[in-house]
Amino acid sequence: MEVRTIKVFTTVDNINLHTQVVDMSMTYGQQFGPTYLDGADVTKIKPHNSHEGKTFYVLPNDDTLRVEAFEYYHTTDPSFLGRYMSALNHTKKWKYPQVNGLTSIKWADNNCYLATALLTLQQIELKFNPPALQDAYYRARAGEAANFCALILAYCNKTVGELGDVRETMSYLFQHANLDSCKRVLNVVCKTCGQQQTTLKGVEAVMYMGTLSYEQFKKGVQIPCTCGKQATKYLVQQESPFVMMSAPPAQYELKHGTFTCASEYTGNYQCGHYKHITSKETLYCIDGALLTKSSEYKGPITDVFYKENSYTTTIK
């Protein structure tokens, strides 16, 4: 009895394709271990004539594949690729409408935090270190965002349907971005203890939790000093293409032309909904596939993004 075979390709990165001759009487799992086709788990399936010449994702289970996976995804987590594939199996079914010149995501599976993050990423200057993220990001900007969303979920250790947080998501993504040249110098002034300067680099240099107003941050924000008295913390120097200011959701007025974009969060910790506000020729609110415009805006804002380049204080 002759062994019926077909020729397929296996890959971990969709760049390096490895030619395989597979036995049609055995499952993919018996031949390769966990195997995925377009995100779908085909591990328990036997090869079919229609699979001839198709590319299958496999887990990096030998040295060659491990090197290829690390170079593309910059992670050695053995569960990463499987999590990416199972997320992709959902995100490829989502709709990605162009809204006001940006790629958004039609609401499904509690994905409003991903839509808000995706919209924000198209408006701030950011370059990702893992080629996987950078490639998928370019495709997302062009309207094909399924891979990018699935990668975000995998890097953030999230599953489809789980509630997510924009600030946490951005923080994970910033860790995989090139923020080497970003720098922030802060000064804390206390009447009792004097003053202390701190220099922050990388992710810490672009994120701040405690106030939404970048102007206020430049002037000074009140913080408790270690001595128990009130101290003032203010920005001395900022070198970065953008800054992200966050605070627990509270009524906040966004003035046209003073910011790049913002995240609105309605609801409580267990259950809520994100919308995205962007400042173009007027203010726009993007909620999944829905767009509304207004000249002014007041609502429960939790993150505001500002364009920056270089700032030095005039406070002496």
Rank of each mutant, 00 (worst) to 15 (best):
residue 53 G to H: 11
residue 4 R to L: 08
residue 102 L to V: 07
residue 173 L to E: 00
residue 191 K to Q: 12
residue 34 P to Y: 12
residue 15 I to G: 00
residue 252 Y to S: 08
residue 112 C to A: 10
residue 246 S to D: 05
residue 134 Q to K: 09
residue 121 L to P: 04
residue 20 Q to I: 08
residue 111 N to P: 09
residue 17 L to A: 02
residue 165 D to M: 14
residue 101 G to S: 08
residue 83 R to F: 03
residue 241 P to K: 08
residue 4 R to A: 12
residue 221 V to A: 06
residue 111 N to M: 08
residue 87 A to Y: 03
residue 12 V to K: 09
residue 258 T to C: 05
residue 12 V to A: 09
residue 56 F to L: 11
residue 43 T to L: 07
residue 310 S to R: 13
residue 307 K to C: 09
residue 102 L to E: 05
residue 50 S to D: 13
residue 21 V to F: 14
residue 93 K to R: 14
residue 146 A to S: 09
residue 133 L to N: 02
residue 284 Y to K: 07
residue 185 V to W: 02
residue 285 C to E: 15
residue 165 D to C: 15
residue 199 T to E: 11
residue 287 D to V: 01
residue 180 D to G: 10
residue 309 N to K: 13
residue 110 N to S: 07
residue 224 P to N: 14
residue 74 H to F: 03
residue 46 K to D: 14
residue 63 D to E: 12
residue 286 I to A: 01
residue 162 E to D: 14
residue 254 L to D: 02
residue 151 L to S: 04
residue 15 I to N: 03
residue 171 S to A: 13
residue 277 I to R: 03
residue 298 K to T: 13
residue 285 C to S: 13
residue 71 E to R: 10
residue 86 S to L: 11
residue 223 I to E: 10
residue 163 L to M: 10
residue 79 S to G: 13
residue 188 V to N: 06
residue 15 I to T: 12
residue 242 F to Q: 00
residue 57 Y to D: 08
residue 183 K to Q: 13
residue 150 A to L: 00
residue 219 K to Q: 08
residue 132 A to H: 03
residue 135 D to W: 08
residue 293 K to T: 13
residue 62 D to C: 14
residue 173 L to S: 09
residue 231 A to G: 03
residue 3 V to K: 14
residue 305 F to W: 08
residue 233 K to G: 09
residue 151 L to R: 04
residue 166 V to P: 06
residue 94 W to L: 05
residue 270 Q to F: 13
residue 178 N to E: 10
residue 120 T to F: 05
residue 284 Y to A: 13
residue 93 K to S: 13
residue 219 K to G: 07
residue 263 S to T: 11
residue 273 H to F: 02
residue 288 G to P: 05
residue 161 G to S: 01
residue 305 F to C: 00
residue 127 K to I: 11
residue 102 L to P: 03
residue 126 L to N: 00
residue 200 L to M: 07
residue 87 A to R: 04
residue 96 Y to S: 04
residue 149 C to L: 07
residue 298 K to V: 13
residue 110 N to K: 06
residue 10 T to N: 09
residue 193 C to K: 07
residue 217 F to K: 01
residue 123 Q to K: 01
residue 226 T to F: 09
residue 96 Y to M: 05
residue 113 Y to G: 01
residue 29 G to I: 02
residue 27 T to R: 11
residue 74 H to Y: 08
residue 93 K to F: 10
residue 16 N to V: 11
residue 240 S to R: 02
residue 69 A to D: 09
residue 86 S to P: 05
residue 280 K to M: 11
residue 47 P to F: 07
residue 130 P to A: 09
residue 181 S to Y: 09
residue 51 H to L: 04
residue 100 N to G: 15
residue 222 Q to A: 06
residue 145 A to D: 01
residue 162 E to A: 03
residue 289 A to C: 11
residue 225 C to I: 01
residue 310 S to N: 10
residue 144 E to S: 12
residue 2 E to W: 07
residue 166 V to G: 02
residue 7 K to F: 10
residue 229 K to C: 05
residue 314 T to Q: 15
residue 212 L to D: 03
residue 23 D to L: 12
residue 206 V to K: 06
residue 308 E to G: 05
residue 66 R to K: 14
residue 32 F to Q: 10
residue 111 N to V: 03
residue 23 D to Y: 09
residue 298 K to A: 15
residue 106 K to E: 15
residue 176 H to R: 10
residue 197 Q to W: 05
residue 105 I to S: 01
residue 81 L to Y: 12
residue 22 V to C: 14
residue 243 V to Q: 03
residue 131 P to E: 14
residue 14 N to F: 06
residue 238 Q to F: 02
residue 21 V to Y: 12
residue 239 E to L: 07
residue 90 H to V: 13
residue 228 G to H: 01
residue 307 K to A: 14
residue 48 H to A: 14
residue 36 Y to G: 04
residue 307 K to Q: 03
residue 16 N to C: 09
residue 175 Q to C: 07
residue 117 A to N: 00
residue 293 K to S: 13
residue 88 L to M: 05
residue 288 G to W: 00
residue 64 T to W: 09
residue 92 K to H: 03
residue 97 P to D: 15
residue 37 L to E: 10
residue 258 T to K: 07
residue 302 T to Y: 05
residue 222 Q to W: 03
residue 154 A to I: 01
residue 123 Q to R: 04
residue 309 N to F: 03
residue 35 T to Q: 07
residue 115 A to W: 05
residue 244 M to I: 06
residue 42 V to H: 09
residue 58 V to M: 08
residue 315 I to Q: 15
residue 316 K to M: 15
residue 107 W to R: 09
residue 72 Y to G: 06
residue 266 T to V: 09
residue 126 L to V: 14
residue 85 M to S: 05
residue 308 E to T: 12
residue 302 T to I: 10
residue 23 D to N: 11
residue 272 G to H: 00
residue 164 G to F: 03
residue 40 A to D: 14
residue 190 C to D: 01
residue 290 L to Q: 14
residue 276 H to N: 07
residue 265 Y to M: 04
residue 299 G to P: 00
residue 278 T to A: 09
residue 309 N to P: 13
residue 304 V to Y: 00
residue 76 T to G: 13
residue 118 L to I: 07
residue 130 P to S: 07
residue 29 G to R: 09
residue 11 T to D: 01
residue 31 Q to W: 13
residue 287 D to Y: 00
residue 272 G to L: 00
residue 315 I to D: 15
residue 224 P to F: 12
residue 308 E to K: 04
residue 187 N to C: 14
residue 119 L to F: 01
residue 190 C to W: 00
residue 259 F to Y: 00
residue 261 C to M: 03
residue 152 I to Y: 06
residue 255 K to I: 14
residue 154 A to V: 00
residue 166 V to L: 13
residue 115 A to C: 11
residue 102 L to A: 08
residue 259 F to S: 04
residue 128 F to G: 01
residue 278 T to Q: 08
residue 65 L to H: 06
residue 114 L to G: 03
residue 170 M to N: 02
residue 174 F to Y: 02
residue 69 A to R: 10
residue 115 A to E: 06
residue 312 T to C: 07
residue 216 Q to V: 06
residue 246 S to F: 02
residue 122 Q to I: 02
residue 183 K to V: 11
residue 50 S to F: 12
residue 285 C to Q: 12
residue 274 Y to E: 00
residue 17 L to Q: 10
residue 151 L to V: 05
residue 224 P to T: 13
residue 138 Y to L: 14
residue 178 N to S: 09
residue 299 G to S: 03
residue 10 T to P: 10
residue 88 L to H: 00
residue 266 T to L: 05
residue 55 T to G: 08
residue 307 K to M: 08
residue 58 V to G: 09
residue 256 H to R: 09
residue 218 K to Q: 03
residue 18 H to D: 07
residue 45 I to H: 14
residue 221 V to R: 03
residue 97 P to R: 06
residue 207 M to S: 00
residue 92 K to G: 05
residue 35 T to W: 08
residue 20 Q to T: 09
residue 240 S to H: 11
residue 84 Y to D: 05
residue 205 A to H: 01
residue 128 F to Y: 05
residue 316 K to A: 15
residue 199 T to A: 13
residue 264 E to N: 00
residue 206 V to Y: 04
residue 85 M to W: 13
residue 139 R to I: 04
residue 256 H to A: 13
residue 111 N to I: 04
residue 290 L to T: 12
residue 112 C to V: 00
residue 313 T to P: 07
residue 54 K to F: 10
residue 7 K to C: 12
residue 14 N to V: 02
residue 40 A to N: 15
residue 225 C to E: 07
residue 115 A to Y: 07
residue 6 I to Y: 07
residue 187 N to Y: 02
residue 132 A to I: 02
residue 136 A to W: 05
residue 15 I to W: 06
residue 103 T to G: 01
residue 101 G to H: 01
residue 97 P to F: 11
residue 298 K to R: 14
residue 302 T to C: 15
residue 105 I to F: 02
residue 306 Y to M: 03
residue 70 F to D: 07
residue 48 H to I: 14
residue 11 T to Y: 03
residue 310 S to G: 09
residue 81 L to G: 03
residue 307 K to R: 14
residue 299 G to K: 05
residue 233 K to E: 11
residue 113 Y to W: 15
residue 18 H to S: 06
residue 240 S to P: 00
residue 5 T to W: 12
residue 233 K to C: 14
residue 232 T to Y: 08
residue 61 N to W: 11
residue 229 K to T: 12
residue 261 C to E: 08
residue 32 F to V: 14
residue 306 Y to V: 01
residue 237 Q to F: 12
residue 213 S to W: 02
residue 42 V to I: 12
residue 239 E to K: 09
residue 179 L to G: 00
residue 168 E to Q: 15
residue 75 T to H: 04
residue 313 T to I: 12
residue 80 F to S: 03
residue 41 D to R: 06
residue 12 V to H: 10
residue 19 T to Q: 08
residue 138 Y to E: 15
residue 200 L to T: 07
residue 44 K to T: 12
residue 39 G to Y: 09
residue 59 L to M: 13
residue 45 I to E: 14
residue 213 S to F: 03
residue 239 E to H: 10
residue 315 I to F: 15
residue 25 S to I: 14
residue 105 I to G: 04
residue 166 V to R: 06
residue 253 E to W: 04
residue 227 C to Y: 05
residue 187 N to R: 12
residue 292 T to P: 02
residue 101 G to R: 03
residue 249 P to E: 03
residue 199 T to R: 09
residue 122 Q to L: 03
